[in-house]
């Protein structure tokens, strides 16, 4: 059983691929079908941001086991332009493009843990975890 998967994303076809991978990994850990959808949706947002704003980057999916707890961690990182104002980027409705501005704050709501770091010109990294109930 693989517990870490690393995927390069640079097109919308890759976004579909990472969603499928995440579903498979999470399913092995016993996530309910509604949780699988929550995870896939969050991942879709993060992967799309990479394609849209950084052109390319990578997604690392890992299964985590802590005692009897099972979870899945998503790392989405790119070496793109970075985010100037993370606080604003995390607000509902804030978008520098023509998006709804819900990707980042929404992904945070969909997951149990969420961390974002970014610096201008360096890139952006998001780390998010969801625990199986």
């Amino acid at each position: 059983m693989t517990d870490v998967v690393q995927i390069t994303v640079r097109s919308d076809a890759d976004i579909i691929l990472v969603r499928q991978q995440a579903r498979m990994l999470a399913k092995e850990l016993g996530f309910s079908s509604s949780d699988l959808t929550l995870i896939a949706t969050a991942l879709s947002e993060l992967a799309r941001n990479i394609v849209e704003y950084a052109r390319q980057g990578e997604i690392v999916l890992s299964q985590i086991r802590q005692g009897s707890r099972r979870g899945i961690t998503i790392i989405a990182r790119d070496r793109g332009p970075g985010i100037a104002d993370i606080e604003r980027a995390m607000l509902d409705g804030y978008s520098t493009g023509k998006g709804l501005g819900l990707g980042l704050p929404g992904a945070k709501r969909l997951m149990d843990e969420f961390e974002i770091t970014s610096s201008l010109g360096q890139g952006t990294t998001v780390k998010a975890t969801k625990w199986a109930r």
């Binding site: 947002e45 709804l100 819900l102 929404g106 969909l110």
Partner: peptide, 16 residues
């Protein structure tokens, strides 16, 4: 579908 509706609400898409 139910789980998709739920995820959409969590994302905040329902009002849109």
């Amino acid at each position: 579908r139910p789980e998709i509706a739920f995820a959409m609400v969590q994302l905040g898409l329902d009002t849109r």
